[in-house]
Each structure stands twice: as C-alpha cells, then as structure tokens.
Amino acid sequence: MLSNIKFDDIWTATYETLYMTIIALIGTAILGVLLGLLLYLTSKDGIWESKTANAVVASIVNVFRAIPFIILILLLFPFTDFIIGTVRGPTAALPALIIGSAPFYGRLAEIAFREVDKGVVEAAHSMGAKTRTIIFKVLLPESMPALISGLTVTAIALIGFTAMAGVIGAGGLGDFAYFYGFQRRQFDVVLLCTILILVIVFIIQFIGDLTSNKIDKR
C-alpha cells in the first residue's frame, strides 16, 4: 500500500487542482453575479425590464449550461489558445472552467436576488436610490448568504470539472489519478487522489457553510 506514491508529484497535482479551483472560482463568482444581475434586472418588473435582453442573456446561459463540460473544453480550444497561448497546463483550463460554471452560478445568483425582499428594494427606491446604490447596497448585501452558499455548491462542481480537464492535459489530481493511477494499474494512487479531492471538497463545504451562517443576521 502506498508503495507507488511519489509524494512530490502528488503535492504538485494537489496544488494544481487548488490553483485551478480557486482562480476559476473567482472568475465564476464575478461573471456569475454579473449574469445573475442581468437576468434579475431585465426580468419582468425589474429595474431594466426588457424581454429581449432577458431572452438573450437567458439563452446564452442555457446554451453554455447545456454543453457537456468535456465537449466545452474541446470547443474552446481555439479561444484558449488565443488568450492563454497554449492548450495544456492548469492555466489553460481556466477559460473553460469559468465559462462552464459561470452560467450555472449565474442562475443561482439570480435566484438569490429574487429572494431579496421586494419591499426593501421598494423602500430604497422611495428614498431616491440610484440603480447602482440598489445593486451594491441592497441587492448584494441582502442576498449574500445565498450567494455564498451558491458559490459553495459551484466550487464543488468546479472541482469535478478540474478533474475532467486534467484528463485532457490540464494537470491536477484528476490527471494524476488517470495517468499515474489508472493507466499504470496503481490503484493506491487513484485512492489517494480520491481522498485528497474529498478533503478539498469537505474543507470548501465547511468554509462555505460557516461564512454563510456567520453573515446571515436574519
């Protein structure tokens, strides 16, 4: 047991997984909140109510959500090559990871905004608040617990995506488990990678739940 494991390589792979997850998560959070805001504000009775704009954003979100992730990576090869300069390594996985998970998070963010008490938004209007004020001082703070727990769910899905991206050359624990574990019949390596991924998932879930509860003053 564990006789096949080179710990240096495992740590590198773990680091790559964490790197991909964290950077992609930041990108997903920003892009997802933007998409969620657009969906919310352009919806019926929204501040920027527009059937057309809403339909456009919604269809972009739905299309990217519908494409299986492994195919999305392949589709994005030219785009990745153009902005990153390569299609291999953890950094090259980032565009696909962000584009793959932002629409999902965008929907969660939209739901979070919908749950903000309409009366509070109305009260802000009655005080003469600008749209910007309503977004930054009402919508975002009031929906923060839901935004955080949505981000936790998204982060865990993202770890799954990084493992898939690993198989086609992004590195990380998924890559390691496949090439050094599965293909060389070293199942202790597969097992260890699994355990490491589970640990990362549990830690993220724990941090997410804790933060969400702590900021929720309802």
Partner: peptide, 19 residues
C-alpha cells in the same frame, strides 16, 4: 430621485435591511 429624498415613507412590513 432628488424629490423623493424630501418625501419619507414607512411601510406595513417595515422593509428594513436585515443585513
């Protein structure tokens, strides 16, 4: 928006920001 700053309003369900 400016005019509304001169018109206060209170609500049945208070509509305070819980955060």
């Amino acid at each position: 928006r400016t005019a509304r700053q001169d018109i206060g309003m209170i609500f049945q369900h208070f509509n305070l920001l819980w955060s």
